[in-house]
Structure formats: structure tokens, C-alpha cells
Design a protein around this nucleic acid. Structure first.
Length: 596
RNA sequence: GGGCGUGUGGCCUAGUGGACAGGGCAAGAGGUUCCUAACCUCUGGACCGCGGGUUCGAAUCCCGUCACGCCCGCCA
């Protein structure tokens, strides 16, 4: 691998050029006595190549305020402005000011900045401490494609935020408590649970029982047998109470379900190469007294009150005009906790354990309203960290929504298997000379890259329809497209056989494509900032596609190793591109390959 | 009924006030004596759900309306 040659020359990235221009415009506006907000002097990338690299519409925005034409204002600004060295030429078109940059100088600045900073390109330091609630599968249920989206999004966000200087602590908030376990225990005991099946195919068996319970409930409901519905529900509830009271059989069942489920989660996480810092399940908060503590705190602070049947609730304003208040329940009349209790207990615990500046919840958008309520209760109780719900859309299948209750479910594992199988076919076809172990290793990385990129390329609020057929075409906007471009760049640099990335000459000879590629590299830090702002990885995912696409175009038209005069220039550009592509994929949580 | 979210070419999608709305898939036409064609080039295809409004300027902001999804449990 090439190492960067250390240079003493101060490099200037596109970012600082933008800053300089913005400051320069700000200075002029101050002289002209305009009241400006920061946003008035923001520069945008020019819409067209011929109009320069950077442009500002500031004259348009001031036209109303100053009562003069945009054209006249633009002319005055340009007249009085002190321009950075890298600006070659300025023109005014329809009141827009277009700055043409000295392309060779900017090219050199960006490429050298990337080569010198390497893995730290776009990095920052000294951010906040963030605790993120992630993944959160339920015991006794499989990891499905929704968890895949969660895990992939969470990982990418954590990576980006860490790169930007924040400390991120991810906590896999396992669903291992609650009424569903009461129901499940009842089903196991009374509806055909089998220790043998629990041994051989645990999740499948538990899922069967869970679905059987829900099926019976629905059937009784449909038949109008209200008293039997109530009896069934009471039976499930009773098991939860037994568990909470520590009754032997209930605890024994709980431990068994827990054990087999976590073993399966680990297996799948390992396969998908996902990992999180902590895994405190909901049961932890009940059993370690955090629920009791938080209920007490809510009562003492007067945020919660006790109701007529011994339940403890917080009253929140209701959106529904029919109702005055919504009750946020902390303790049921049975004396059991609900999910809201456990989420508050989690907040209490995380404050004591991690003292975060911000709490993130990567949870699907079904729970949007709930999190608004949870955060409101938390604020009333005086937790001073910020709270943010990173809400994301559901993952559907081409034939409709998944539903655990109805039994339509596609597991993460099945999705991987199908994707891997298709990837292996292609590798077998294209790289027959490799041994089968290596072909499988490549197929694995490609399969993971495919699945993960499918989850990241769509902005998080939108639902995804996951179509295995389409995802595994491996062409166009896919993970393998990114991986392939990265391998190409890497191979060129390796084939050059030089120890260091060659320096870019003072006055590099570059064409349009060379420059555009460098300019795109310079945008990388801005893209990361956008991800931070949006709490989304999609800006980075689409950036990586743009970069890979532009590199492929560059690669097809601009010879690197065979270039005559500017071989070193292009080699440095290729090395810089490889670094930014690799860094992008690393942050997205997608593996890069040595060959494919 | 109320709340939240989404609506962009045949299909999927980027884009939260700026200069002719980017990509991808699918369709059609080309491209490998040269760094791996999981690639590249070109062509056709969009009144950005609909109607108003704000603005010099709206896919983007506001109001209304329609469609779809989700939520409105002492379930999670």
C-alpha cells in the first residue's frame, strides 16, 4: 500500500475555499450596511460546469432589502470583494455571482489533502457523548429484514458520528420482558410446548407458539366469545405476574427462552458482521430495580400519580379532541411494568451509567407517537440530555407487509442466504481461476455489501420494498458497484508499484474529468456534515455512488498508468479516490475487497 | 374520527428556496489488440399527486384536497 509523502506545503481544501469566499462576501456586505444572516452568504455549487465551480445568489436575496437590482448589487459586491488566490475569474450572470477557480491549484490542494489526512479525511474531534438504542429484537422471535435495516442504519450512523468526533455507545435493547412472554409461557405450557423442539429448532418452535396464541385470540374474538378472550388474556397476564414475582417455573421458562434466543441472535449478528457495544435487555431493568427506582422518581417529582386501582400513570395532553388526556402508564393495576416503564428505567440507567449528552432511538416509525410521549415524560422528570428518535420506515416484501403475528416473515438469515447464493453464482462465473474458498469469501462480502447498501441508499423515513431478485442483479446503484470501483482503484495503485503516492506537480496538467473527480473528493466532509444533521446515512450512500460512478467514467476515459506526462498526477488522484471510497464504505459498514 | 409520515418518467429512487429536477432498473443503439465489461458511451421517456398562496425565484415553505402506510392497548 502506498504511504503518503509528507509535505510541508499548507494544503487548502475545497471546504476552506468556500469558507474564505463566504467570509469575504460577508465582509463586503458589512461594509455595505446590509443586515445579513449567515444563510445569505452561503455558496452553492454552480449548476453548470461552464459557470464556474462556486456561485452565490446573495444579490437576489438582497434586492428587496436594498431596493436595487440584483445585477447592480452583484457588481458592487464583486467590485469590493477581496478574492482568495484560487479564484481565477468572476462573472455575473442574471445576478448570480459565479466564481471560477484556478483548477490546477484546487485540484492539487484537494488531492494532497486527502493523501495527507488519509483515514482522518473529514474527521472532527470533541463532540458529544451519544447513547443509541439500536436493533432491539424480541426474544423468541427471529431477526427479520427490519432488524437488518435497523442494525445497518445504526452501525452506519454510529460510524459517521464517531468519525465526526462524537462518542457513540450502542445498546442493543433486547425485548425480553412483557406481556408477550406471559402469553408465550402460557402457550408453551398449555398449547403444545415441547422441550425437544426447543432443543432442535428453538426460534421456530417459539414463534409457532406465539402465533398459535395470537391465532386463538383472534378466532375467539371473531366468534364473539368475549369471556373466553378475557380468560385467555388473563392467563397470559398471570404468567407475567408469576415471572415478575420470581416463581420457579416461570423463571425457568424465561431463562430457557432467553438463552436459545440470544444464541441465535449472536449467530446471525456474526454472519451479518454487526456488533453493538452493550446488550441490556428489558428484563435487566425490571430485575435490577431500575423500574422501581424510576417509578419512585416519577411519583416524588409529582410527574406521575396513583390511580383508583393502584395503577401509576402520567397524564399527557391528548391529540384526540374526544379525550382530555392520554395516560402514559408506568405501573398496571396488576403491579406489572409496561414498555414505557422500562424505557424510562433505561433512561435512568443510562444517565447513571453513561451520562450522555444525547439519547438516540433507532426505532421504526410505527412508534413515532410513542416516542414523543416518552420524551415528554422524560423532560418532565428532569432528564437534561437531548432525546431524538431516529425513525425509519418499514421493510416490506414485494407481496405486502411482513407481520410476525400473521406469520409472514422473512428472516435476515434467509435474505442473506438468497443473496449469497446469487453472488456465488456470479463469482463462480467471472473468477473461475480462484479456489472455491476465496470465491465464497468474495461472495460473502458482495452479499453483505448488497444487503447493507439496499438498506442505506433509501432515506430512512421511507419504506423499503425489499426485492431479492432486484437487489441481486448487482448492477447499477448497488453495493457491488461501489466495491468494484474501489477494487479497480486499489489495483491501479498497487500495479504502479510505488512506495509513496507521488506528489502532484505545482502546475498539474488536468482535463475536465480529472478536475471533476477531485472536486467531488473535496465535497466529502460536507456530505458527512449532512449525515450528522439529518441523522441519516443516505447522503453518504448516494455520495459514494456518485464518486464510484465518476471514477468509473474517469477510469474508462483517462489512462492512469499509461498516461504520458501526467501519470503521477492521475496516480495521486486515483490513490486519493481509493481512500475516500474506502473510507465511505468503512463508515457505511460495507466491506471492501482485495479483488472481485 | 384524530395524529404522524410518504406521494418525483413504465418501475425504484436522490434532491428541505435558486439558474434547463440528478441516478438506477426496464427499452433501444454502440463500445474490450490498452490499468478486470460487476464497467463505459449515446437515445427516447417527468406538467415533481391535485388546487391555491408566499417569494425576484418553489419538488422544496404555508393553506386546502386526494391517495397510500403507520399509530391512537394497563401490547411492543
Amino acid at each position: 500500500m502506498l504511504r503518503p509523502r509528507v509535505r510541508t506545503v499548507r494544503v487548502r481544501m475545497l471546504r476552506t475555499l468556500r469558507d474564505q469566499l463566504e467570509n469575504s462576501i460577508g465582509d463586503v456586505l458589512a461594509e455595505m450596511d446590509c443586515s445579513v444572516e449567515g444563510s445569505l452568504v452561503e455558496l452553492q455549487d454552480a449548476a453548470e460546469e461552464e459557470r464556474g465551480l462556486l456561485a452565490t445568489p446573495v444579490a437576489h436575496r438582497l434586492a428587496g432589502q436594498l431596493g436595487r437590482s440584483p445585477q447592480a448589487i452583484a457588481e458592487e459586491i464583486v467590485d469590493r470583494q477581496r478574492l482568495p488566490d484560487e479564484i481565477d475569474d468572476v462573472e455575473i450572470v442574471n445576478g448570480f455571482v459565479n466564481y471560477h477557480v484556478d483548477e490546477p491549484a484546487v485540484f492539487r490542494g484537494i488531492v494532497e489533502a486527502v493523501v495527507e489526512t488519509g483515514d482522518r479525511f473529514g474527521a472532527r474531534e470533541d463532540g458529544r457523548r451519544i447513547v443509541a438504542d439500536v436493533s432491539a429484537p424480541n426474544v423468541a422471535k427471529p431477526l427479520h429484514v427490519g432488524h437488518l435495516r435497523n442494525g445497518v442504519l445504526s452501525t452506519a450512523l454510529a460510524n459517521v458520528f464517531e468519525h465526526r468526533g462524537h462518542e457513540v455507545i450502542t445498546d442493543d435493547h433486547i425485548g425480553d420482558w412483557g406481556l408477550q412472554f406471559g402469553n408465550l409461557m402460557y402457550a408453551f405450557e398449555e398449547m403444545g410446548g415441547s422441550e425437544k423442539k426447543l432443543e432442535s429448532e428453538p426460534i421456530e418452535h417459539l414463534l409457532d407458539l406465539y402465533q398459535a396464541f395470537n391465532r386463538r385470540e383472534s378466532e375467539l374474538e371473531a366468534a364473539g366469545k368475549d369471556e373466553e378472550v378475557d380468560a385467555l388474556r388473563d392467563a397470559g397476564r398471570e404468567w407475567l405476574v408469576r415471572l415478575q414475582d420470581g416463581e420457579e417455573r416461570a423463571v425457568e421458562l424465561f431463562e430457557r427462552f432467553h438463552e436459545v434466543s440470544l444464541a441465535r441472535f449472536d449467530e446471525t449478528y456474526n454472519l451479518l458482521e454487526l456488533s453493538f457495544d452493550h446488550r441490556y435487555g428489558e428484563s435487566f431493568y425490571v430485575r435490577e430495580g431500575w423500574c422501581d427506582r424510576v417509578i419512585e422518581r416519577a411519583l416524588e417529582s409529582g410527574v406521575a400519580r396513583e390511580g383508583p386501582n393502584g395503577e401509576i400513570v402520567v397524564e399527557l395532553p391528548s391529540d384526540d379532541p374526544e379525550k382530555d388526556v392520554d395516560e402514559f402508564v408506568l405501573l398496571t393495576a396488576d403491579g406489572t411494568t409496561v414498555y414505557g416503564t422500562r424505557d424510562l428505567a433505561t433512561i435512568e440507567f443510562r444517565e447513571a451509567e453513561f451520562d450522555p449528552d444525547e439519547n438516540l432511538y433507532v426505532v421504526a416509525n410505527e412508534q413515532d407517537e410513542y416516542f414523543q410521549q416518552l420524551f415528554e415524560v422524560a423532560r418532565r422528570m428532569g432528564y437534561d440530555a437531548d432525546f431524538y428518535h431516529v425513525s425509519y420506515g418499514l421493510v416490506n416484501l414485494p407481496d405486502g407487509t411482513m407481520s410476525t403475528r400473521a406469520g409472514r416473515i422473512v428472516t435476515a438469515r434467509e435474505t442473506y442466504d438468497a443473496t449469497f447464493e446469487r453472488a456465488l453464482e456470479i463469482v463462480d462465473e467471472t473468477r473461475p481461476e480462484l479456489d472455491s474458498a476465496e470465491r465464497e469469501a468474495i461472495a460473502h462480502d458482495v452479499a453483505l455489501g448488497t444487503m447493507k447498501f439496499e438498506m442505506l441508499k433509501v432515506s430512512r423515513r421511507k419504506d423499503i420494498t425489499f426485492d431479492v431478485e432486484e437487489a441481486t442483479s448487482f448492477e447499477g446503484d448497488t453495493g457491488p458497484y461501489l466495491q468494484y470501483a474501489t477494487v479497480r482503484a486499489k489495483k491501479i495503485v498497487e500495479k504502479a508499484g510505488e512506495e509513496d503516492v507521488p506528489p502532484v506537480p505545482e502546475e498539474p496538467t488536468i482535463n475536465d474529468l480529472d478536475f471533476q473527480l477531485a472536486a467531488l473528493l473535496g465535497r466529502f466532509p460536507l456530505v458527512l456534515a449532512e449525515c450528522e444533521e439529518e441523522y441519516d446515512a443516505t447522503p453518504l450512500a448516494t455520495y459514494a455512488l456518485d464518486l464510484a460512478g465518476l471514477f468509473n467514467t474517469f477510469y474508462a476515459h483517462n489512462p492512469v498508468l499509461d498516461a504520458e506526462a501526467n501519470r503521477d498526477t492521475r496516480l495521486a488522484l486515483t490513490a486519493a479516490t481509493h481512500r475516500v471510497l474506502t473510507l465511505s464504505l468503512d463508515l457505511l459498514g460495507i466491506n471492501t475487497l482485495d479483488r472481485m
